[in-house]
Amino acid sequence: MIFSTLGALFALIASIGIFKMPDFYARLSVTVKAVTVGIGFILIAVSMYFVDFAVTTKSIAIVFFLIMTSPIAGFLVGRVAYLTGAKMWKFTMFDDLKTDIDVKKKEIEEQEKASQSEQAEKKDNTEQSDNL
């Protein structure tokens, strides 16, 4: 009874979170964790109601699946949202992934420049040898 109440309350908190949060990323971070905890509590309630080995094994399997898969799904959806350009909250202060992406872009540009200058030098050398 207590565990099922806790689980239902966690599910309710997650749903209010997904409805009220201002930003996609905040919604994602609220919902993934809270619902996982809620399902965990409800599964504890189920395995306490049916005192049975098979039921307990199944509920442990469900909790394992949820704990394994929900962070992966959250990560994938968040990455896709960033790549497709989901808007951030207007008070967001840090965007670490953006600085990382800028650094990577700069490195790639420098490499391209270096390779281009090398090719130009090679061309110069071949022209000089032709002249000779």
């Binding site: 749903s15 996609f24 919902t31 896709v80």
Partner: peptide, 15 residues
């Protein structure tokens, strides 16, 4: 956005 709907769908199934 579409990603909001994806997260909502995931949450619907989980609840």
């Amino acid at each position: 956005q579409v990603v909001d709907r994806i997260v909502a769908l995931d949450l619907l199934i989980t609840v």
